[in-house]
Structure formats: C-alpha cells, structure tokens
Amino acid sequence: MITARAGLRLVQHRIAALRRAVLTEVEDLNRLIYHILRGGVIVSVAFLLFGFILAGVTGHPLPDKSIPPRLLGAELIGFTPAGYLNLGVLVRSETARTS
C-alpha cells in the first residue's frame, strides 16, 4: 500500500515537473523561435531530398518554375518531384515569415 502511494506520488511529481518544463519552454520565446526555425530547416531539407530521390527513381524531369500554392496539392498526391521540391522551398520561406 505504501509502495502504491509512493508510486502515485512519484507519477504526480513527474507530471508536475513535465508541466513546469513545458510552461517554461513555451514562455521562453527564444527557445520557441529556435524550434520553429530549426524545425523548418529540417523539414524543408527533407522534402527537397525526397524530391531529388523521386526524380532519380521515377525519371521525371526536375522543374524549372515554381508551382502556384493552389496547384501544389495535386502534385503532392501524384508524388512528382516538382511537388516536393516546391513544398521544400515554400516551407523554407514560410518558416522565416512565421518566426
């Protein structure tokens, strides 16, 4: 019984500590901006690499013009290199605006 109560207290402490950590993290604007910018870089580079891999595998030509955002959905569903390269570029530029 004592062990169960100690266990419950330990879980409560952990949850409280996690909550404090999350609140501190969110309150710290610098860390929030860091996560947005860093996340944007990683996601963008991942989409770009995926686009190049798709071009290599499927033999589709690489695009030389940007696709308007409203037409991007069809390209992404069709798994074209143009769609993923454009998405990578868009994520990159939009991340800077969001921050």
């Binding site: 963008s44 013009k65 570029v89």
Partner: peptide, 20 residues
C-alpha cells in the same frame, strides 16, 4: 520571396541547391 514564388520566378532546382 513569396511574391517572386507566386509569379513563377523561383526555379525549384536552383533554390534547392541554394538552401542545401
């Protein structure tokens, strides 16, 4: 950049290499 992108002036191949 978004204005240039909307007008189709961004070449995704060149932009990808610049980003990397």
């Amino acid at each position: 950049a978004f204005i240039y992108y909307s007008q189709g002036l961004v070449n995704p191949q060149l932009a990808a290499m610049v980003i990397v």
